[in-house]
């Protein structure tokens, strides 16, 4: 269910959020953000902190890259192509490089800003910030927004919902892994193996959400 292309109404935004967070879950459907999913998630509070940090950076990165694409570099993926509003030329071949630099820069600035002005927030998820520069989920959001050519409101909704979906998946996984530590797992499957198989079962469960918007 994709509602990115339809007219902007409250119900379409709600559908967009539902489909992004649950049906096309970033981790379980698109496989992005798998690294922290396998590596970091062991305790629920850690997973929640990580999820919050990712959602936060994702939203900021999505808004920044959308703005840059719209005003400067342009987007060749929408029908007929859309050159940058201020430059008037199609610089979309620079998009990938620009996006990854914006993400790396944004993470640094967010970290500094939070440490200075919101120490409470920083202590909640600041430590995860440096880890997520190379989190593919962040770049993935920016790319999807470019490829689908969404408007600004949908961009924000998509990024927040994507982060929400990531948080849901990683938190569920953390809860399961707390239990898995006490389970008798065959030696070769310990670690990544069993995590992937559990993720497969989770993905199967999440497939039940498909068609929810119909």
């Amino acid at each position: 269910m994709n509602t990115l292309a339809t007219d902007l109404t409250v119900s379409s935004i709600i559908l967009l959020i539902l489909s992004t967070a649950l049906i096309n879950n970033f981790v379980l459907h698109y496989f992005v953000g798998i690294c922290p999913f396998i590596g970091v998630s062991r305790r629920i509070d850690t997973a929640l902190g990580m999820g919050m940090a990712v959602t936060f950076v994702m939203t900021i990165a999505a808004i920044l890259t959308k703005t840059i694409t719209y005003f400067i570099t342009g987007n060749a993926n929408v029908d007929g192509g859309a050159p940058g509003l201020l430059t008037g030329t199609d610089l979309s071949f620079l998009n990938y490089t620009v996006y990854i630099l914006v993400i790396a820069g944004a993470v640094q600035f967010v970290e500094m800003y939070l440490r200075k002005f919101f120490p409470a927030l920083y202590s909640a998820f600041g430590v995860y910030l440096p880890l997520i520069t190379t989190n593919c989920a962040i770049l993935f959001v920016c790319l999807m927004i470019m490829m689908k050519g969404t408007g600004f409101v949908e961009t924000i909704a998509y990024a927040v919902a994507g982060g929400l979906g990531f948080t849901i998946a990683i938190s569920i996984m953390a809860g399961i892994r707390e239990e898995l530590d006490h389970a008798d797992i065959p030696e070769p499957l310990k670690g990544a193996g069993i995590t992937l198989i559990v993720a497969g079962i989770l993905a199967l469960a999440f497939m039940g959400f498909t068609g929810i918007g119909q």
Partner: peptide, 9 residues
Amino acid sequence: AQGPGYADT
């Protein structure tokens, strides 16, 4: 022509 399908556009 395009529109929403079961999974994506």
